Simulated scan of single mutants.
Amino acid sequence: MGLNYIWDLLIRAEQCGLDKKDIQFSAASVYSPYMELSLEHMNASHVEKQVEINPFYRFDEMFRGMLDINYTEYPEFRGALFDILIHFLGEIDLLQGMNKREFYIRFVRRDIEAGIFGDKVRRNFQKCGKEEQDIVAASVLQTVQTGDALFTLKRTARLLFPGSTIYANCEEKNELLFYINQEESESGRAKISLLLDLLLPVRFHTELYWNRHFGILGVEETMRLDRIAMY
């Protein structure tokens, strides 16, 4: 699917890991009256750093005077101002589609990235992808709102590690057993460390099992030879 609007392009840029400030907008000299972005290929889905805009598609009253063809003075200043204004309008576009919960999630992300939760959390958060960061921030918010950290921890772990299972042993001791259905890796360790630092109740301690499940009597999938972890 192609890119059609400023907000569409900014969202795609963020998904691709491209900083929005690296995109430079300019007014197109040739454009379609039916599209906001003036792209070389109509159905282009990738993001270029130099983007031409049809400013009259939605913002005719704002740019009519600035881009009057009879006014040719200060081209560099007008170009820089145009870029700033389009970035500003793009941010307004993005915010208009957000509800209160999404604002709160942004605040949590900002606090984590600022090191409010500690430098270790900040470093591990930076190792996660954009969607993973949103999941973690939303989980922190949910914990604050509901107070149920244990439920949120289990749910978040399943989202970040599909196919994984968490067992709670609360009869003999407050213990959580994590079976992570993937090979142990640096990124995996960073994500699980992030979850435990942010969501693990203080009274619990944990055991991690990567890609090898501990044996459970009666559960055939966990009793395979050479695939059983010791508990």
Score class of each variant (00 low, 15 high):
64 R>N: 06
87 H>K: 13
201 P>F: 03
168 A>S: 14
212 R>D: 04
1 M>R: 13
94 L>K: 12
109 R>I: 01
202 V>N: 05
48 E>Q: 13
27 A>R: 09
14 E>P: 00
169 N>H: 10
20 K>H: 09
77 F>A: 09
58 R>M: 08
148 D>A: 10
152 T>M: 12
109 R>W: 00
83 D>R: 06
231 Y>M: 15
19 D>A: 14
70 N>Y: 12
200 L>A: 08
231 Y>P: 09
166 I>R: 00
150 L>T: 11
96 Q>Y: 06
96 Q>V: 02
96 Q>M: 13
77 F>E: 12
98 M>V: 06
194 L>E: 02
54 N>P: 06
173 K>E: 15
84 I>R: 12
206 T>R: 01
38 S>V: 07
59 F>L: 10
222 T>H: 04
112 I>P: 02
49 K>Q: 10
174 N>Y: 13
8 D>G: 09
135 I>Q: 08
96 Q>E: 14
180 I>N: 03
153 L>H: 01
179 Y>T: 02
177 L>K: 10
199 L>C: 01
151 F>K: 14
147 G>F: 07
228 I>R: 09
209 Y>K: 09
99 N>L: 04
132 E>Y: 03
21 K>T: 11
70 N>E: 14
38 S>F: 04
139 S>R: 03
21 K>H: 10
64 R>M: 09
126 Q>Y: 06
90 G>A: 08
93 D>N: 15
82 F>R: 03
35 M>I: 00
90 G>R: 01
61 E>D: 15
137 A>G: 07
23 I>V: 12
190 A>K: 06
7 W>D: 15
88 F>K: 14
229 A>T: 02
38 S>P: 05
197 D>H: 10
171 E>L: 11
156 T>S: 12
68 D>C: 13
37 L>H: 06
109 R>E: 11
54 N>T: 07
113 E>T: 04
145 Q>K: 12
134 D>S: 06
15 Q>C: 05
210 W>Q: 08
81 L>K: 07
154 K>H: 09
141 L>F: 01
25 F>A: 00
35 M>V: 02
200 L>S: 07
175 E>S: 09
203 R>G: 02
72 T>H: 08
148 D>R: 12
91 E>V: 11
90 G>C: 08
143 T>E: 07
141 L>C: 00
31 Y>W: 07
14 E>D: 10
47 V>H: 04
195 L>W: 03
161 F>R: 05
79 G>H: 02
177 L>D: 05
